[in-house]
């Protein structure tokens, strides 16, 4: 079986966490197919952390360098990958903003469909079989990929990274000529780097139970207490303009699978539940003991969030201070 190609993501010269997960997913399939894993990195200068990719499962690390690769270059990266893809049985991307833009372009060059937001990959009768949520998480689909090169994007936080102890040899690869019709001119980062709800290990989300947009400070404080936590929001409060759409969890927002999801003042509409039900641990804090959110929560507290959340923030801070 032909090898796996894992297309990694970096920002400002640092590999993104999901990049390790792509390599780990590639390793899993490669082991099932008795083949090897190549990791492909785009950069314009040095990218840090490439020496750690062998441990994630990469046999070779391919580096494509170009002036435009400081930022995302849709056409340049599509041309580079499309030039390599025929040598591979599977090309894996992350189901991120970049991966969901790039993977379909590559799939189109290969005249095939890609499978988006894949949560599991197996091999049956020499073909890649993927599991992916559809209807915004209200159903799960299994697809057998029929093309000679399968194109997939994997959902962040889904494939565990384990020490695979591979060599991870570095090689430079050429970038083919391409015409850049689309140019990323700038990345506007917020003053304080915010974790993305789709990628964070812990997500604390607030809903209409917070009553006023200002009260989201309670959610921010709790997220801050956990550390490495993102602030999410229900559709109701995003539609009301309290929070940016990038924070929305559920249908017409993001589907998340963090290690811990804390739902505060969210009743649990079907669209919200579909967006967070794959979290490993769910905590719900709500005044209404009959709220649907308690049906999916592992742990619930029934009570006034304005009393419960500050106490929880204090307890979590205390615990972390104790180490």
């Amino acid at each position: 079986m032909s090898p796996m190609l894992c297309v990694l993501e970096q920002r400002d010269g640092t590999l993104r966490k999901v990049s390790h997960e792509i390599v780990a997913a590639g390793r899993k399939v490669a082991d099932a197919m008795s083949t090897t894993v190549d990791a492909l990195v785009f950069g314009h200068d040095d990218v840090e952390g490439l020496d750690a990719l062998g441990a994630c499962g990469a046999d070779r690390v391919l580096v494509a360098t170009h002036d435009t690769f400081r930022l995302y270059s849709p056409e340049g990266q599509t041309a580079t990958i499309a030039g390599l893809a025929a040598n591979y049985s599977t090309v894996l991307f992350a189901a991120t903003a970049t991966g969901k833009d790039l993977a379909p372009r590559v799939a189109a060059r290969l005249e095939t469909s890609c499978a988006t937001e894949v949560t599991d990959i197996t091999v049956a009768e020499g073909r890649v079989v993927v599991t992916r949520p559809v209807y915004a998480g209200r159903a799960i689909q299994q697809l057998r990929m029929m093309a000679s090169t399968a194109v997939l994007s994997i959902r962040p936080n889904t494939f565990p990274v384990t020490d695979a102890g591979r060599p991870g040899t570095l090689e430079s690869i050429p970038v083919p000529e391409f015409t850049a019709n689309v140019e990323v001119v700038e990345v506007k980062a917020p003053a304080e780097a915010a974790l993305d709800v789709g990628e964070a290990a812990i997500v604390v989300s607030g809903g209409r139970g917070l009553k006023e947009p200002e009260n989201f400070s309670l959610i921010e404080d709790l997220a801050d207490a956990f550390g490495q936590a993102a602030v999410g929001a229900s559709r109701a409060v995003v539609d009301a303009g309290w929070r940016d759409h990038s924070a929305q969890v559920g249908q017409t927002g993001k589907t998340v699978s963090p290690g811990l999801y804390v739902a505060v003042g969210i009743s649990g509409a079907i669209q919200h539940l579909a967006g967070m039900r794959t979290a490993k641990v769910i905590v719900a804090i709500n005044r209404d003991k009959d709220a649907p959110i308690f049906k999916v929560a592992d742990y619930g507290i029934v009570g006034d969030l304005f009393e419960v959340v500050p106490r929880l923030t204090a307890e979590v801070r205390k615990l972390r201070a104790e180490g």
Binding site: A115, M145, F294, D298, Y299, V302
Partner: peptide, 26 residues
């Protein structure tokens, strides 16, 4: 480009529990 092998409902989450009421449950 692919064959749909199956469509299923997501697995139910194991039943959770209410830890308690109010801030004293924290």
């Amino acid at each position: 480009a692919f064959e749909v092998l199956s469509l299923t409902l997501p697995p139910d989450r194991p039943p959770g529990r209410i830890v308690g009421e109010g801030p004293d449950a924290v």
